[in-house]
């Protein structure tokens, strides 16, 4: 029946305990350096970078780590991480998906929190692992325990870390795409907007249909490229109509899809992961799909 309650409600996170940093001894403008004393008092976050960030955009991983450290957490990147298993899971290959889920559970055992700069991968871990492993009671229990500790980045920064951004500037007009898994599986909507509200000079202008799928859908975009192209074309049209010069989202899959279409159409709108703007690194790094200066 837990399976059904998980499916029915999208709020498996209610009632979570928070463990904020015990001491606020770090100057939020600086990267706290690890030392033996603070390592014992500060809770540790394991960063699950996700395969897309690992392969294609490390700057998102570094931006995420920086934000978590600014909030006073110790950040580790467990080496045994590759992918969350979603490609197999969404293709019906549950055996391989379960094998990878067990590997992720092992790799992330013992950390206070697991933070993921993706609603999609975060959703797979937090909303689907327990269902995927439902036939193996011990693993299922471990999956539920991991789900309790797993957070999407922006939600963690707002609801657990209660991060106040230290003076970040990013002048310009920005629009935000709500990635589907984050929005509907994890309830990510207000959190990134709240954080962006602290960025100086940034004007957030909502586009039409912010909550409609961009057409990425994992393997969907290569299995049904024509339908996917139509969906991302609609998304790009809405982005353009908003008048924004930058589009942000919390998922690299959607962003690669959107940026790929923007660039194919030679549109000047730049695409970044929201973490890159919040960490102030978007000013330095080339936008997704753009060449190095």
């Amino acid at each position: 029946m837990v399976l059904h309650s998980l499916r029915a409600g999208c709020t498996p996170f209610k009632g979570r305990t928070r463990r904020r940093p015990a001491t606020n001894d770090t100057n939020p403008g600086e990267h706290p350096m690890p030392d033996a004393a603070s390592a014992t008092t500060r809770p540790t976050v394991a960063l699950f970078a996700t395969c897309l960030v690992d392969l294609f955009r490390p700057s998102v991983g570094f931006a995420s780590a920086q934000l978590l450290e600014q909030a006073g957490y110790r950040v580790e990147v467990p080496e045994a991480q590759t992918c969350c298993g979603q490609p197999a899971y969404n293709s019906g290959d549950n055996a391989h998906a379960a094998a990878i889920a067990r590997q992720v559970i092992e790799a992330f055992r013992g950390y206070d929190y697991v933070v993921v700069p993706s609603g999609s991968c975060g959703g797979t871990i937090a909303a689907h692992y327990p269902d995927l492993l439902r036939h193996e009671p011990q693993w299922r229990q471990a999956a539920e325990e991991l789900a309790e500790r797993t957070w999407e980045l922006t939600r963690f920064l707002v609801e657990v870390a209660e991060l106040e951004l230290p003076g970040v500037d990013h002048p310009g007009v920005t629009t935000y795409h709500d990635s589907c898994s984050g929005l509907r599986e994890l309830g990510i909507r207000s959190q990134p907007r709240r954080l962006l509200g602290q960025v100086r000079g940034l004007e957030l202008r909502e586009m039409d249909d912010t909550d409609v799928c961009c057409g990425f859908g994992g393997t969907f975009c290569v299995k049904y490229p024509e339908i996917s192209e139509r969906l991302v074309s609609d998304k790009v049209a809405n982005i353009e109509a908003s008048g924004a010069d930058m589009v942000l989202a919390g998922d690299l899959g959607c962003l690669f899809n959107i940026a790929g279409r923007l660039k194919r159409l030679d549109k000047p709108v730049r695409a970044y992961h929201v973490a890159e703007v919040l960490a102030g690194t978007a000013q330095r790094d080339a936008a997704i799909g753009e060449g190095e200066a």
Binding site: A49, V53, D54, L55, F56, R57, P58, S59, V60, G61, F62, V77, E79, Q81, C221, V222, K223, P225, E226, S228, E229, V232, S233, F256, N257, A259, G260, R261, K263, R264, D285, A286, I288, G289, E290, G291, E292
Partner: peptide, 28 residues
């Protein structure tokens, strides 16, 4: 250039989209 117009084995993607190029190395 920051992106690919064509990529081997990725015709489904590149038919209607460019593929953003990766940064220098992996995050790990």
């Amino acid at each position: 250039k920051g992106r690919f117009r064509h990529l081997p084995l990725a015709g489904g993607w590149t038919a209607g989209r460019d593929f953003p190029a990766p940064q220098r190395t992996t995050f790990q």
